[in-house]
Design a protein around this nucleic acid. Structure first.
Length: 462
RNA sequence: UCCCCUGUAGCUCAGCUGGCAGAGCAAGUGGCUGUUAACCACUGGGUCCGUGGUUCAAAUCCGCGCGGGGGAGCCA
């Protein structure tokens, strides 16, 4: 049986043909002789307007019971619409109330509601314009991520979610266990991890990078795209405890190849949003962030600015009076610094490279100056870091020495060091937080509003 | 974890130096010959987050607790 979505119906030639529309009622407007019902089914932002002229009998009785949020099917004839901005409308002849939504209980009435309120209604919020649009853009971006890499010969590698090594060093981890914690707590005894599921402490991954490097050293160009977990007590609009991360890793690439890849990737995604989500982006432009579409078009069109950390700090020092944290060579760039660089200095995305090695991870390639590493961060206006990456230290002695210098144990990294021991090549990669990308593309402010079910400290409802 | 703001009708909020609980929207009823988040009129709607205190009197002032938001740090 043919069951067109409302998006498909919107594309039909309106010749008065009969069809059935299914969806949820966004609004009902009734007059003495005419009732307007606007239906949405999530296939697009816009609604299908259904018009009932002089409804009588069972149709009139059913219309009286239809309220905002109800699920209905409408039988009718598709005709051109006189309403501006809307190609077609459905001249209704019959309708069925499939699932009612009593107005005195249904929380989403036809009015503005705050995102804070909707966060407490996470099971209903996808029925709103904003969250429907976010979901569609998110889907389009996921597809574009795979499209970008697949078209370039990258292989998608499924790195593990559970890891028994806490060697990843990217932040606090969630522990995974099948031990009976209540019983251990009551007994007051020590924990015997040999009795735990994996025979030792195990955790949720904070990064697939170390694992995916093994495949880069075999398949060449690879990437991960999957859930990632950080148990940091972060309470911000930019952090989640469970988020999705994309981590490409490419054998033979150096830091410059890495920057080129990161830039091409971001611009590809922005282009994909502009081309594939025009209706949703127009909505975000109008309701969420004025000028968004024009801004994104600029991102897609222009190369990103690049500067070294040393250069960035020099710029910041000239303006240091305006900062709460005084910048100096060797400091980590603060949020305010990143915002100032992107918003005031370059007016767009900026790639900063060659950070002091003491503020970066052990696996980054050490530069010849003995002070910096071949790291790169892609910073964007409004919220700073969207990508962090580096060329990797591929020379065994230097990597070993760095591990020891940083107080880590080389034996923990034996398999990682093996990659340098056997057939090592230069390689580079980066990590992009998927939700941060969605914030960037939609203009949304809070990361909890661009993932269907946000996980954050004290927040795991739904 | 730290700093700041905040909690009043279903929602968004006003409520001043303490003195009878308010508005807009939503909902309900009626009206309106094509509406655009329709419009017009009327109606109903309150544990003022909780708790203890100050006071003749607390939504309002103070203490404690809980919830929400923003910023910072950690980072993607």
């Amino acid at each position: 049986m043919q069951r067109p979505t409302l998006k498909e119906i919107d594309g039909f030639e309106a010749t008065g043909q009969e069809l059935v529309a299914r969806g949820w009622v966004r609004t009902k407007r009734d007059q003495k002789t005419t009732v307007f019902l606007e239906l949405n089914d999530g296939s697009r932002l816009g609604n299908l307007q259904c018009v009932f002229d002089n409804p009588e009998g069972i149709v009139a009785a059913t219309l009286a019971r239809v309220q905002t949020g109800a699920a209905v099917t409408v039988n009718g004839n598709l005709v051109p619409s006189p309403k501006p901005g809307q190609r077609v409308e459905l001249k209704g002849s019959a309708l069925e109330l499939i699932g009612e939504a009593p107005a005195d209980e249904y929380p989403l009435q036809k009015k503005n509601t705050s995102f804070e309120f909707l966060r407490e209604k996470a099971h209903l919020r996808p029925r709103t314009n904003t969250f429907g649009a976010v979901a569609r853009v998110r889907n389009a971006m996921a597809r574009a991520v795979h499209g970008f890499f697949q078209d370039r010969g990258f292989y998608w590698v499924h790195t593990p979610i559970i890891t028994a090594s806490d060697a990843e060093g990217a932040g606090a981890m969630f522990q995974v266990t099948t031990l009976d914690l209540d019983r251990i707590a009551k007994s007051g005894g020590k924990i015997d991890y040999s009795k735990d599921f994996f025979g030792k402490p195990s955790f949720l991954t904070v990064s697939g990078q170390l694992n995916v490097e093994t495949y880069a050293q075999a398949l060449g160009s690879v990437y991960t795209f999957g859930p990632t977990f950080r148990a940091e007590n972060s309470n911000t609009t930019r952090h989640l405890s469970e988020f999705w991360m994309i981590e490409p890793e490419v054998a033979w690439n150096d830091i410059h190849d890495n920057m080129d890849l990161a830039e091409a990737f971001v611009r590809h995604l922005v282009k994909a949003a502009l081309e594939g989500c025009a209706e949703d982006l127009a909505f975000f432009d109008e309701r969420i962030q004025k000028g968004l579409v024009e801004y994104l078009a600029g991102i897609a069109a222009k190369p990103f600015e690049r500067m070294t950390y040393t250069e960035a700090v020099a710029r910041l020092e000239k303006n240091s009076g305006d900062f709460e944290f005084k910048p100096y060579w060797g400091c980590d760039l603060q949020s305010e610094h990143e915002k100032w660089l992107t918003e005031q200095v370059v007016g767009g995305p900026l790639i900063v490279t060659d950070y002091p090695r003491d503020i970066k991870a052990f696996y980054m390639k050490q530069n010849d100056d003995g002070k910096t590493v071949a790291a790169m961060d892609v910073l964007v206006p409004r919220f700073g870091e969207i990508i962090g990456g580096s060329e990797r230290e591929w020379r065994l002695p230097l990597l070993e020495r760095r591990i020891i210098e940083m107080g880590l144990k080389p034996e923990t990294y034996s398999w990682y060091l093996d990659l340098r021991r056997f057939g090592s090549t230069p390689h580079a990669g980066f990590g992009l937080g998927f939700e941060r990308l969605i914030l960037f593309v939609t203009g949304m402010q809070n990361i909890r509003d661009v993932i269907p079910f946000p996980r954050a400290p004290k927040l795991a409802d739904f």
